[in-house]
Design a protein around this nucleic acid. Structure first.
Length: 440
RNA sequence: GCCGGCGUAGCUCAGUAUGGUGGAGCACUCGGCUGUUAACCGAGCGGUCACCGGUUCAAAUCCGGUCGCCGGCGCCA
């Protein structure tokens, strides 16, 4: 059962390719058993590979006894190497099947734990096996396209890919949510954001971006939170708030366009109507101020006093009035992170923005112009209980040729969850990490 | 952190109100079947009823406690 396995360098086709062949043409595929059933002299074995699935018919009279016996008894997820002839038959799923002339089992799988009844918890415990499901395979392919599109978007616009440290001594988004790491007898932390380091980089490279893991030890148990997630961030010198929000809209539209080009059928398989996304491409995505959002909420009986951040409930109510993503700017300065600058025109507002996705998916982008005022920065740090002396290197960036600059981050899994209409963000990443989930 | 729900076979669940020899479907094994579509038919295998304690002649069921998980909220991408 645990023998050494080997493969030959024969001429194999992807199943998707084999499915395009005509009646009687020979094919040679390899993959894993997806479904199987047999009667006395026939076995119907549906085989999957990375591309798709196809039904293989094994007939007792056409195969050596040993191979037919193998086809009959091989359990789901056994690995197989099959040669045969394409046969068009309306009884086959997809209208085409393979009549096997050779059926080699590479490894007889043990009883596969995942069957048709399953709880989300069980599937998470067996994530290393559930990864093979069509659902997760499809999502991972779309994720590949989303991340590729983000790289393409920024590179084609003159941005440099820049890598910040993952181990960082100071915080960016609030102290309670840091993961501590032992560091040669000292303590350091996993990155919550690349931002402070990206700000250092824009004085050299001017425009930088990155897609990198981010760690937040928030005790959030919701369908929108992960402890380890990927953030696609950009930071640009000589850029103010308006241009940054426009970049965010352009980037998300670009990603949608690439996904629609490559994954229309995948989206449909996941239950996401591609037309809903396509309709967004030609529309203008509104930008409103936080104060205007409060007015919309007040008209619908939700009185939020200026100064409170929008809660999930309020974001959802707000988004009921829009059918596209919406950018909300100028949140109250007092609740915002220390690096978000005051608006000189309205000192109680910060030059910052969030992008909210429709259909209840909420915040997918967060960003701001960055404060260049050392006094303001030190004051905000102290207000948030921080010691400005820990941020000397960051303050240095304002002492040597400071310029206006802005940046934002896109939550890759949140974006993916919205694009794929997932009901839980955990399915947007291969091995999710949450408050209560750290394995496999 | 707060609120709600759940924990019984490998998996998904019923059984708990009203205590009385632990069930079903799926998976797996064996037998049958030459066109299956989550195949079907028959048989078999399979249990620390989350854990600890209590009440009782008798506890999956009642009482007390503990642990774990899921979801919502807060916070955030």
């Amino acid at each position: 059962m645990h023998r050494h396995l080997s493969v030959s360098m024969a001429d194999y086709q992807k199943i998707a390719h084999a499915l395009q062949k005509s009646e009687g043409e020979p094919v040679h595929i390899r993959g894993w058993i997806y479904r199987t059933r047999s009667s006395g002299k026939l076995a119907f074995v549906v085989v999957r590979d990375e591309s798709t699935i196809i039904q293989v018919v094994a007939e007792k009279e056409r195969l050596p006894d040993e191979e037919f016996a193998g086809a009959q008894k091989a359990l789901i997820e056994s690995s197989v190497d099959i040669e045969g002839l394409i046969h068009e038959d309306e009884r086959a799923p997809g209208g085409r099947e393979i009549h096997a002339t050779s059926f080699r089992v590479i490894q007889f799988a043990e009883d596969f734990p995942i069957t048709e009844d399953h709880s989300t918890e069980f599937l998470l415990d067996n994530r290393h096996l559930w990864l093979r499901s069509r659902r997760l395979t499809t999502i991972m392919k779309i994720r590949h396209t989303v991340v590729g599109a983000i790289h393409e978007f920024f590179r084609s616009r003159g941005f440099y890919e820049f890598h910040p440290p993952i181990l960082q001594p100071s915080q960016c988004e609030g102290g309670a949510t840091l993961f501590e790491v032992k560091y040669y007898g000292d303590t350091t932390y996993l990155s919550q954001s690349w931002q402070l380091y990206a700000e250092a980089a824009v004085f050299a490279l001017e425009r930088v971006y990155d897609v990198a893991p981010t760690f937040r030890a928030e005790r959030s148990k919701t369908s929108r939170h992960l402890s380890e997630f990927w953030m696609a961030e950009m930071e640009a010198a000589w850029m103010e708030l308006d241009e940054a929000t426009q970049y965010a809209k352009d980037e998300i539209k670009f990603v949608l366009r690439r996904v629609l080009e490559h994954h229309e059928r995948d989206l449909a398989y996941l239950g996401r109507d591609p037309e809903i996304l396509r309709a967004l491409l030609d529309k203008e995505w509104p930008t409103i101020k936080y104060r205007e959002a409060l007015e919309v909420l007040a008209e619908h009986g939700m009185d939020v006093p200026f100064g409170k951040d929008l809660r999930t409930l309020e974001e959802e109510e707000l988004m009921r009035h829009f059918d596209t993503p919406v950018v909300v700017t100028h949140y109250p300065k007092e609740t915002m992170a220390f690096y978000k600058p005051r608006d000189p025109q309205h000192p109680d507002e910060a030059l910052c923005f969030d992008m909210l996705a429709p259909e209840g998916y909420g915040e997918i982008v967060g960003g701001s112009q960055r404060s260049t005022d050392i006094e303001e920065l030190m004051e905000s740090l102290e207000q948030q209980g921080e010691d400005p002396r820990n941020y000397e290197w960051y303050l240095d960036l304002r002492r040597y040729g400071s310029v206006p600059h802005s940046g934002y981050g896109v939550g890759v899994e949140r974006l993916l969850a919205w694009i794929c209409a997932l009901d839980n963000i955990k399915d947007a990443i291969a091995f999710p990490r949450t408050v209560t989930r750290k394995s496999p």
